[in-house]
Structure formats: C-alpha cells, structure tokens
C-alpha cells in the first residue's frame, strides 16, 4: 500500500512536470527548418563559463562582419570590460570605444549636422552604447533588400535553441538546395532558417577576419566565437548567476538537512 501511494505521488509530480515541459516543446511544432547542429559550447551546463578568448574574438567578428548590418543596442563599451564578459582591460575598452564614432550631442549652436549636412560625431566613451549601422528600421530595410537585420543583443535567447541555431545558420550556407526548392532572387538558401530562403548573404569566410591571438579563423571557429559573444550579450550575468546558484543550493541543502532533523525530532513521539 505504501509503495502504491508513493508511486501515485510520483505520477502526479511527473504529470505536472510533463504539463510544464510541454510549454517548452510548444514552439517546435511543425516548423520547416532543419534541426540545429550538434555542437558544444563552453558556457553550457551548470558549470559552464564563457571562454574569454572566444568572447574577445567574437567581438572582433561582430565588429568586422556583423556590425555592418546588425545593431547590438543593449551593449555599451563599458560592458566589454565587465567581469563575466570579454573582460578587456578598461584601457582596452576605452581604446575600442575611442576608435568608433558615435552621434554627437548638439553643439553650442544647437546644430546636429556639419555644414555638409553630415551628422556630427565624436569618439565614443565607455558609457556609450555600440552604435547602430542604420539610423532607423526603414533605412535598415532599404539597405537590405527589404529585410530587417534583427538586433543581435538578445538573439541567443530570442530563438529556440539560440546558440545552436545561430551557429547552424552561420555555418549552414554551403548545403545545396534540393532541386524542387526555388530560391527567390536576392535570397540565399539556408536550411536552418525558417522557410529556407534568407536575406542575409553568407557572412563568414575562411580567414575573413585575422585574429590577433593567432587562432586560425575558419568559418567554424568564427561562428563558435561570435556565438559565444552573442550568448554573453544575451545573458551577461550568466557566470554570476551560476556561481551564486551553487552557493544558494548548498545553503538550502544544509538548511533542509537541519530542518529534516528537527522535523523528525519533533514528530518522533507523535506518530
């Protein structure tokens, strides 16, 4: 009898768990896109942390490749020096910022453009957000054949299986379209993209960037690095979170242990 009771309790717990997990499965449904590639990232799992080298290289890939079309509007230059992030030194972050021009504040005469009509700019400082490649969404569409390049700050969390999805997409251009599939003009075949026809041309090429740390810049390496970087931009507090999590769980387990002892003690004579 005891056993059946236990199994029943387990069943109800499992049932509720199943109910909860169906939500996570929901978005998969009947999508056409291929399953994401099986790759492993250092930041996965409860003990995973971001690879600093990959984060710094990933920023380089973003800056030299992605930033031509994609904004990263939730990231400021100061974040590049944040603990748990790429951890550039403050001086490095300052230099990275100073190398980039951002829209300046109105000058003393209240002007926002120079005599030629170009927007006034100044070198960025740590507090500045990374500049967007286009002044607004309409300009972005107009320059990209009508497609809007999404902001990448949260891309790793805004897609199912985010990091794997972005990796698969970036490395998925070389597969051949099935004969029956017609790729529309101005689009490119990528089976990891919903609908298979993507507006973004193949962004990465072998040695498309030159890594200063000597890492060989294969497409896979660049994809790995930029995915690591974008995972950090989406979840910049991940390392803090996991570290604190272990402390909290150890504390709670100890508290549960002592409460269990107290519980048994109190109830010893009452059963």
């Amino acid at each position: 009898m005891r056993l059946t009771k236990l199994s029943r309790n387990l069943a109800i717990a499992l049932g509720l768990g199943l109910l909860a997990s169906t939500a996570a499965m929901a978005a998969e449904g009947a999508t056409a896109r291929h399953h994401v590639k099986e790759v492993e990232f250092e930041f996965e799992g409860p003990f995973g942390t971001y690879d600093r080298g990959a984060l710094q290289r990933g920023y380089q890939v973003y800056k030299e490749v992605c930033a031509a079309c994609h904004s990263l509007s939730y990231i400021a230059f100061r974040n590049l020096a944040d603990k748990g992030g790429p951890e550039f030194s403050e001086a490095q972050a300052r230099a990275l910022a100073a190398a980039v021009k951002v829209q300046a504040e109105p000058n003393d005469k209240g002007e926002t453009t120079d005599d030629a009509g170009a927007p006034l700019t100044r070198p960025a400082v740590l507090a500045d957000k990374l500049p967007s490649p286009f002044p607004n969404d309409n300009a972005a569409r107009a320059n990209n054949g009508g497609a809007l390049p999404p902001d990448l700050s949260l891309i790793a969390k805004a897609r199912m299986d985010g990091p794997h999805y972005v990796y698969s997409l970036l490395t998925g251009y070389d597969e051949k379209a099935p004969g029956s599939f017609h790729v529309p003009d101005g689009k490119y075949y990528n089976p990891y993209f919903e609908g298979w026809a993507i507006g973004m041309p193949k962004p990465l090429s072998n040695n498309g960037v030159t890594y200063s740390d000597g890492t060989k810049a294969t497409i896979e390496q660049q994809a790995h690095d930029v995915v690591t970087f974008l995972s950090w931009t989406a979840e910049p507090k991940m390392e803090d979170r996991k570290r604190m999590g272990f402390g909290v769980l150890i504390f709670l387990l100890a508290l549960a242990g002592i409460l269990f002892a107290a519980y048994r003690r109190v109830w010893k004579d009452a059963h």
Partner: peptide
C-alpha cells in the same frame, strides 16, 4: 530539540 530549533532558526535568519 532545542539545539535543532536554534540551529534552524539561526540558519533561517542567515538566509
């Protein structure tokens, strides 16, 4: 029993 009470109370307070 008192020890367990005090210990759980103290840990709870720390939490």
């Amino acid at each position: 029993r008192d020890f367990l009470y005090v210990a759980s109370g103290a840990m709870g307070a720390v939490g």
